[in-house]
Amino acid sequence: MAKSKKGSKTKKFGLLAEYDSAAAIFHACEKVRDAGYKRWDSYTPFPVHNLDKAMGIKPSVLPWIVFACGMTGAASGMLLQWWSATIAYPLIIAGKPLFSFQAFVPVTFELGILFSAFGAVFGMLGLNKLPQYYHPLFNIARFARATDDRFFIAIEASDPKYDLDKTRKLLEGTDAVAVEEVDD
């Protein structure tokens, strides 16, 4: 802590490293992954295939959320129709039984799809902690180029393995164009 040049009054978000090619960030990610960091992320202007493998990201739990939502949707669709057709408004239609499940299949199916879609969209937003109105990285001017032609890795100070000097050294050893500390 004492080594920090500007005095350590302000809380730090972590370190940001900048790269000028997809290949560079790909190999950098492999190094950061192998060094055992857990709380870090990469930022690229376009999807870099297999970067998730280079980063060692585990498969998302999103499919389970979607599955649970889909099953809930289908079940609630069928239950809603069963309840309204047999208990709330028992009307005989076309001489068919009150509980004519065949007629309820389209709504059951559609609600299953609808809930799955909700689960996928809102589950994705939730897992990504979106929307976020503030992110420390936006304080860095050079980070704007993450939507244009530059690639970034940010390792957060809250990572148990984070150590300002060691982490900086690691990032500098990965062909980074620039490495800088980010205020929280």
């Binding site: 076309a94 001489g95 068919k96 065949q102 007629a103 299949v105 389209p106």
Partner: peptide, 12 residues
């Protein structure tokens, strides 16, 4: 398969 069955079941 269900589409085929459903319309026939409905129209009866």
């Amino acid at each position: 398969g269900f589409s085929q069955y459903f319309l026939i079941w409905y129209a009866n």
